[in-house]
Amino acid sequence: MNPVDMTTETLRQQAKQIKADGCRFVTVTCLEETEDTLALIYHFEKNLELFHYRVRIPKDKVVPSLCPVFSAAFLVENEIRDQFGVTFEDLEPDFNGTLYFGDSDVVTATPFCRFGVKRADG
């Protein structure tokens, strides 16, 4: 797989283009690349072929959500918010980090990160 690199600025614009091409939203993978950066890999599908787009972000950056383009993205973006502490803009519905962990103490932690980050509004 060869992910195409994108930036957070062009993310939503390109997503619109991808949608206009008739692609289907598959999922988003978040992974921790270094101590301070995360990578979001967006997976799309068309004619049985997967397309990958990678966005590298610093940990405290607010990422524009894909929800206005692909409304199905809300679940996976909420999951990433829970597990990695990434904040998404225009997320609808926004569970604010309580999708899996409810209102327990875990909400302030980012359990899927090797190097913990303090949440902005934890």
Partner: peptide, 25 residues
């Protein structure tokens, strides 16, 4: 999605299951 760095342990394993995709519908 599997990412490995050549060690015994995988770097990242991401599983997107079908029901996860079927909840928005």
């Amino acid at each position: 999605y599997i990412k490995a760095d050549g060690s015994r342990f995988l770097d990242r394993l991401r599983i997107r299951t079908p029901t996860f995709a079927n909840i928005p519908p």
